[in-house]
Simulated scan of single mutants.
Amino acid sequence: MVQSLNSKIDLTVKATAFTAFTEYGQIMIGNKALEFYHQRDARKYIQIPWQEVEYVSASVLFGGKWIPRYTIYTKQNGSFTFASKNPKDVLRAIRVYIGGDKMVKSLGFFGVLKRAFTRKPSQK
């Protein structure tokens, strides 16, 4: 059994982790880390300490009414993408521990296209 990094849990939500395969389980946000535990296999888990988080990017659609997924970028281990039942509650709980300056909104479809066409040829 895996030992939790947290001593106090603020929020527990059903979630989906998008790794090589789609994994279903629960996200637990606590005072020391964000933790994802698989619902059936105890060996499949993700633990991200708050000091390891570089920033969090959220896909925001329809003017903030719908957040389909969010990605946590770490300093050493790459990125982890999640979707959950209440993404606004999850992002608010994360903001308490990492601060609002590390929370960003990802580019939409047209933002990606605009950036692709407005870059100088030397930057591609």
Rank of each mutant, 00 (worst) to 15 (best):
Q76R: 12
P87N: 10
K85R: 15
T81P: 02
F62A: 15
N86R: 10
F117P: 01
S79D: 13
T74A: 02
D10G: 04
G63M: 08
D10E: 13
W50I: 03
G78I: 04
Y37W: 09
L113S: 08
K65E: 09
K32G: 01
A116S: 15
G99N: 10
K14A: 11
S59N: 11
K14Y: 07
S84E: 08
D101I: 10
P121G: 06
Y55F: 14
K14E: 12
T71R: 10
G108S: 13
I72Y: 00
T12H: 03
E54I: 03
R69P: 00
G63F: 10
F110Y: 11
K8P: 02
F109P: 00
R40P: 00
R95N: 13
F82C: 03
R92A: 15
I72A: 01
F36C: 05
D41P: 00
S79Q: 15
A116E: 14
K88A: 11
Y70F: 15
Q51R: 10
G64F: 09
V2P: 09
V53K: 00
T12G: 07
L11D: 02
N77M: 06
T19W: 10
F80M: 10
I94T: 04
I46E: 04
A93D: 05
S84K: 00
D89T: 04
S84N: 10
F110S: 11
L5A: 14
D10S: 14
I72K: 00
V96H: 13
K88H: 14
A58G: 05
V96L: 14
I67H: 00
I98G: 02
K114N: 14
I48R: 03
A33S: 13
A58M: 08
D10I: 05
I98M: 04
L91H: 03
Q26E: 13
S106W: 03
R40T: 14
P68Q: 04
T81R: 07
G30A: 04
A20I: 13
S122L: 08
V13N: 07
R40F: 11
F18G: 00
G25W: 00
V53D: 00
A93K: 06
S4H: 13
E23I: 01
Q123P: 01
K44Q: 11
L5T: 06
S122A: 12
D89L: 09
K65Y: 07
I46P: 01
R40K: 14
F82W: 02
S4Y: 07
G25E: 01
S7N: 13
T16N: 06
E52S: 13
L11S: 03
G99Y: 08
G108Q: 06
T74W: 01
Y70D: 01
R115Q: 15
Y55E: 06
I46M: 12
F21D: 13
K85F: 09
P87Q: 07
Q123E: 15
I27F: 04
K65W: 11
V112N: 14
S79L: 09
E35T: 08
L91S: 03
K120W: 10
D89K: 13
R119F: 05
Q3T: 12
G99V: 09
K114Q: 14
K65M: 12
A33L: 05
S106R: 12
V56I: 14
M28T: 04
A42T: 06
F36M: 06
V60W: 02
L113V: 15
Y24C: 03
Q26V: 04
T71K: 10
